[in-house]
Amino acid sequence: MSGAREMVREIATPQGPARAHVCRPVRAAGTVVLGHGAGGGLGALDLAVAREVLVDRGWAVVVVEQPWLVAGRKVAGRPPTLDEAWVPVVEALVSGRGRLPRPLVVGGRSAGARVACRTAAELEADAALLLSFPLHPPGQPDKLRAHELALAPDPSWVVQGSADSFGTPAELTAYLPVGTTLLEVPGAHSFPRGSRPALVDALTRVAGMLPA
């Protein structure tokens, strides 16, 4: 991340203040905005590797800390409240004074990936990066969230653990919308440290396919 500028912006939302953790190269090729999962964890391995790889490839990367986490709560709000906070944060980042450049790639891990899919059209996102997409709750394959995945823009990329209890790559394959590429990485829903090399490889491949 040599030469990249790092800063934290606090942005007002209807759900309270959110924090945008921005890492921006001098001449950014575009912007990737990522959300965290329902358990918080801004330092989740897949988020950290995505930030590292994409910044090194010249993209501005923002990890958004949802208001519930900023407020110190331990439980995420309901999906509509997450969307209500996410949209104004992304809009503030890519419009107005000091805006980050397009193309705009939205995404995140787990619950953050769901938020990105549901709001991609409203934000006019150019693409999506979905990490550990939770197709269904563990042990409940009948409670599908395929309708949310179907909202992902074209193109999109899903980076999924081979043993993800929220939906394996094999399960996801049947529901991938047009223009979505699935990359399988050894690991579960929360990737262990040993998955780092495979994540670096997968996200380097994604970086090479992002819209110019």
Rank of each mutant, 00 (worst) to 15 (best):
A12T: 10
R57F: 12
D201T: 13
R114Y: 07
G107R: 02
D46K: 13
P88V: 04
G161I: 03
G208F: 15
L131D: 01
R73A: 09
F133V: 05
T180F: 07
E52F: 06
P153S: 08
A212F: 11
Q66V: 14
A202P: 12
G96W: 03
G187D: 13
R145V: 12
G161D: 04
V90Q: 04
R102I: 09
E124L: 15
G98I: 12
P155H: 02
V115D: 06
P17W: 02
V62T: 00
G108Q: 07
P155G: 04
G107Y: 06
V8N: 12
G179C: 12
A38V: 13
G187F: 07
P186S: 06
K143E: 09
W157M: 00
F166L: 07
T81Q: 13
D201H: 12
E184K: 09
A48G: 10
A29C: 13
A116C: 08
E52V: 06
V105L: 07
A12Y: 12
G98S: 06
A212P: 10
V178S: 15
R9L: 11
E52R: 02
P192L: 05
D56K: 14
F191K: 00
D83W: 12
T181C: 10
R51K: 12
L183G: 02
S2C: 15
K143N: 14
F191V: 00
E84R: 11
E6N: 14
L172N: 01
L135C: 02
A152Q: 04
H136M: 00
A4K: 00
P137F: 14
G108Y: 04
V64F: 01
A38G: 07
T168A: 01
E124M: 14
V8Y: 12
L135P: 03
P169I: 03
A50T: 04
V87F: 08
R102Y: 10
P103D: 01
P155I: 09
D126R: 05
P101R: 11
Q15G: 11
S156N: 15
D83Y: 09
L100V: 09
L182T: 03
A188Y: 09
R51D: 08
P153F: 01
M1W: 09
F166V: 11
W157Y: 05
A198T: 07
H36W: 11
S190R: 13
P155C: 02
D126W: 00
V106T: 07
G139A: 05
R24K: 11
T204R: 05
Q15W: 08
G139L: 00
R196K: 12
P155W: 00
G108A: 06
A28C: 09
V22S: 10
W59T: 02
K143W: 09
G108S: 01
P153L: 04
G58Q: 01
L172E: 04
Q15I: 14
D83C: 13
E184A: 15
A92C: 09
H136I: 07
P177N: 05
P186Y: 06
G39I: 11
A71Y: 02
A38P: 08
D142Q: 14
G98M: 01
D154L: 10
T81M: 12
R145L: 10
E10P: 11
W68V: 04
A44F: 05
W68I: 03
L42T: 01
S110H: 04
C117N: 05
L183T: 06
R205W: 13
V33T: 02
R51N: 02
Q160M: 10
A44T: 07
L93A: 01
L42V: 03
A120N: 05
